[in-house]
Amino acid sequence: TTYKLILNGKTLKGETTTEAVDAETAERVFKEYAKKNGVDGEWTYDDATKTFTVTE
């Protein structure tokens, strides 16, 4: 399944996708990605669109 991440950081904005077996796995991948890019904020997930959003 393809999951999407929307980054709404103070200095970094953008989108990325990952293939994962479930939302929990995708969330771990995306949180590591955000951490590596210095983005830390509020996380939300929309199951209907398989989209995570992190907003600083």
Rank of each mutant, 00 (worst) to 15 (best):
T1C: 04
F30N: 00
T25D: 14
D46F: 04
L5A: 02
T2G: 06
T18M: 07
V21M: 12
E27M: 15
G41R: 01
T1P: 06
D40E: 07
D46E: 14
A26R: 00
T55M: 07
E32C: 04
N8F: 06
K10E: 13
D47E: 08
E56V: 05
T25Y: 07
G9Q: 06
T17Y: 05
A48G: 13
G9N: 04
T17H: 12
K35D: 11
T55R: 07
G14C: 05
E42P: 07
L12P: 03
T1A: 08
W43N: 00
R28F: 15
Y45T: 01
K4H: 08
E19K: 11
E32H: 06
N8H: 09
D46K: 07
G14I: 14
F52S: 00
T25C: 04
A23D: 04
R28T: 12
T49C: 04
K31Y: 09
G38I: 06
V29L: 15
T51G: 02
K36G: 13
K4F: 06
K13A: 14
T51E: 06
E27D: 10
F52K: 00
G14Y: 09
T17C: 04
G14D: 14
T49A: 12
E56L: 03
E56S: 04
E56K: 02
K10L: 11
L12A: 05
E32D: 06
D46Q: 13
K31F: 09
K13D: 15
K50E: 05
A34M: 05
V39C: 04
N37P: 01
G9F: 12
V21W: 09
E42M: 07
V39K: 02
A20T: 09
G41A: 02
A26I: 02
E27G: 10
I6G: 02
T49H: 10
T51A: 13
K10A: 07
T2C: 04
W43K: 00
G9V: 14
T25L: 15
W43I: 03
T17L: 13
V21G: 14
E32V: 12
T11P: 06
A48S: 13
D47Q: 08
K36Y: 12
T1N: 08
T44W: 09
G38Q: 13
E42C: 04
A26F: 01
D22N: 15
K36A: 04
T49G: 04
A26N: 00
N37V: 08
D22R: 05
V29K: 08
V54F: 05
E19L: 06
E27Y: 08
L7P: 02
F52H: 02
D46P: 00
D46G: 02
D40R: 11
E32K: 08
K36F: 12
E24N: 09
F30H: 01
E24D: 06
L7G: 02
A26Q: 00
T11Q: 11
I6R: 11
E32Y: 07
L7V: 12
T16C: 05
L7A: 03
A23W: 10
K35A: 10
T44E: 14
A48Y: 13
I6M: 06
L5E: 00
N37Q: 14
N8Y: 09
A48I: 13
Y33D: 02
T18P: 01
T18R: 05
T51L: 06
T2W: 14
D47A: 11
F30V: 02
Y45H: 02
D40T: 10
D40I: 10
L12H: 09
K31W: 11
T44C: 03
T51F: 03
N37S: 08
V54P: 01
L7K: 01
K4Y: 09
F52D: 00
I6T: 05
T2Y: 07
T17D: 12
T51R: 03
E32N: 12
R28C: 04
E24P: 09
Y3H: 03
L12E: 11
E56Y: 08
T53A: 06
T18D: 03
W43Y: 03
Y45K: 01
E42D: 08
Y3S: 00
T17N: 06
K36Q: 15
A20Q: 11
G14M: 14
G38A: 08
T2P: 09
K13C: 04
A20Y: 03
W43Q: 01
T16M: 11
A23S: 10
A48P: 15
D40W: 06
R28P: 03
K50Q: 15
V29C: 04
N37Y: 14
E27S: 09
T11W: 13
D46W: 04
K36S: 11
D47P: 14
A34D: 00
K4L: 14
D22V: 04
K4Q: 07
T18V: 11
T55K: 07
Y33L: 07
K13M: 15
D46C: 05
E15T: 11
E27L: 10
E42F: 12
E19H: 12
K36N: 12
D40H: 10
Y3L: 01
E56N: 03
K35G: 10
T49Y: 10
T2I: 09
K50H: 14
K4A: 05
D47H: 09
G38E: 13
D46Y: 07
V29G: 04
L12K: 07
V39D: 01
R28V: 14
E42L: 10
E19W: 14
E27C: 05
N37I: 05
E27R: 11
E19F: 15
K10H: 09
V54H: 01
Y33G: 02
A26T: 01
T18C: 04
G38Y: 05
G38V: 05
K31A: 07
T16P: 03
G14P: 10
V21L: 07
G38R: 08
E15P: 03
E19P: 07
T18Q: 08
K13L: 11
E19G: 07
L12Y: 09
A34T: 11
N37W: 09
D22Y: 05
V21D: 12
T1H: 06
G9S: 14
V29S: 07
V29Q: 10
T16K: 15
Y45F: 10
T49S: 13
L5T: 01
E24V: 09
T1D: 08
Y3M: 01
E15N: 03
K31R: 11
T53V: 12
E24A: 10
K31V: 14
D40M: 07
A34H: 01
E19Y: 09
A26H: 00
A34C: 04
D22W: 03
T44L: 14
Y3R: 00
L12S: 11
R28W: 13
V54R: 00
Y33S: 02
T55C: 04
A23E: 12
V39M: 06
T2H: 12
R28A: 15
T2R: 08
Y33C: 03
A26L: 01
N37M: 06
T17M: 08
K13H: 08
A34R: 01
I6Y: 14
T44R: 07
G9A: 10
G41V: 02
K31H: 12
T49V: 13
A23C: 05
G41N: 01
T16Q: 14
G9H: 10
K10G: 04
T44P: 00
G14Q: 15
T11L: 14
Y45E: 00
K13P: 11
E56Q: 09
K36H: 06
T17E: 10
A34E: 02
K50G: 07
G41I: 01
E42T: 10
V54E: 01
N37F: 11
K50P: 00
Y3K: 00
V29W: 12
D22I: 04
D22A: 07
N37E: 14
F52A: 01
E15H: 09
K4G: 04
T2E: 13
T51V: 12
Y33Q: 03
T55E: 09
T25P: 02
Y3D: 01
L7C: 04
E42W: 08
T53W: 08
V21T: 09
G41P: 01
T25S: 11
D22M: 04
T16Y: 13
K50F: 13
T1F: 06
T11A: 13
E24K: 07
G41Q: 02
Y3A: 00
T17R: 12
D46S: 12
E42Q: 12
K13N: 09
A34I: 08
T49D: 05
G9Y: 11
